[in-house]
Amino acid sequence: MRGRDVTLAAPLLAAEGLGKSFAGIVALENVSLRVDYGERVGLIGPNGAGKTTLFNCIHGMLVPDSGTVSLAGHDISKLPVHLRARRGIGRTFQRIELFPDSTVRDHLVIADRVRHGEKRFWLDVRRHGTPRPDEMQRSDEMLALFGLSELADEPIERLSLGQCRLVEVARALMTKPRLLLLDEPSSGLDRAEAAALASTLFDVQQRQGVAILLVEHDIELVARFTTRCYLLEAGRLLRAGPTAEVMASDEMRAAYLGSLPVPT
């Protein structure tokens, strides 16, 4: 690995000066963002602030009009989604994207196989594609981590929304990402489920050391889960810094206060 030395100092993810507009409406304007190895970073802002657009630019679903995205010092701005995934960006989706007609384990095995995969087509066909022992072991570990062991052979159609979210995260983690993008993981979950998800995520993050960039409406969850966060409004970066500081800022109050859940 030549170039490793050169890039060691670079942050894991660096988005520089991203801009994007749709049909003349500016969705992102000169937004820069940085995530270090193993860090938990939040991205907050009211609806229409451009959070999802920013996310999609990082992930590769959208090509920004301006700016660059680099991962561990390498410019990945021009790479398609699947190559960014192979370089270590995993993600979940706000509107759950699972593979219908597949079991929970199928989801994990396929993700694992893309990573470790059988490259030779005919060997693979001969093997019937059944999970190998090492694949079973890795997927078993992941299932246990998320408390999904019991549901391994259930088709995802029989899972609850909260369980589906867990499968999505587990699938993303099976590709051994360096950076995990979580797009509103608590949407559609009730408070108890959201809290359970947050603690599982925290657990997993501690063990795997993966960096997490979290988009979330639930401010409490962001406050508890992240160390640093970015506040976006109307496509512009309002404030960035340690989560507690951002949460206490005037900008935050201005952008968010009225829509905070009512304290009890």
Binding site: H59, M61, P80, V81, H82, L83, A85, R86, G90, R91, F93, E97, L98, F99, P100, D101, S102, D106, V109, I110, A111, R113, V114, R115, G117, E118, F121, D124, V125, R127, H128, G129, T130, R171, A172, M174, T175
Partner: peptide
Amino acid sequence: RSTTGRMLRATRGSEIAAQSIGISP
């Protein structure tokens, strides 16, 4: 049943999710 088959099926089910785990569409 092979990996290739699984990848094709995954892509059929959700192309964007398949890409997000590194499958080339």
